[in-house]
Design a protein around this nucleic acid. Structure first.
Length: 119
DNA sequence: CCTGTGACATAAG
DNA sequence: CCTTATGCCACAG
């Protein structure tokens, strides 16, 4: 096999990485939350947790992607600033039965949904 | 090809 | 507790 063009980033599917993130997000059960790192790890990019968040940035418009269920390792709603409403993210979570205090998810460990374990 | 960016994670002070 | 710094990686221009 010769010949390996160094550019193997996007063989044919542009942003396959993003789709992967969306796929996991869609699988997040109701009333549950997960972390960027967990998703990144599951898709094979544990060191690209930031990419996950960035992918969420593009998720705007994709109602199939509950980005509000994705928080940082601390269980803090770090990305709430990117939502339409400042408190929209929190409202959505509370609507699902998730208690939020000071932008932090209560019982985060309890509500934490690990794709690598659940799947 | 290089640069900029970004909703993380971790470390250090 | 806080801020600052670094790593890290994928995508867009």
């Amino acid at each position: 096999m010769g010949l390996e063009n160094g550019k193997e980033s996007t063989p044919e599917s542009g942003a396959n990485f993003f789709e992967r993130v969306y796929e996991i997000a869609r699988l997040i059960p109701y009333g549950r939350v997960t972390s960027y790192g967990a998703i990144a790890k599951y898709i094979g990019a544990a060191r690209s947790a930031r990419m996950v968040g960035w992918a969420m940035n593009a998720c705007e418009g994709r109602e199939d992607v509950p980005a509000h269920r994705v928080v940082n390792r601390n269980g803090v709603l770090t990305g709430k600033h990117h939502f339409k409403g400042t408190n929209l993210m929190q409202q959505l979570l509370e609507n699902e039965g998730v208690a939020i205090v000071d932008n932090q998810v209560q019982h985060f460990e309890k509500l934490f949904w690990d794709p690598a374990k659940e799947l």
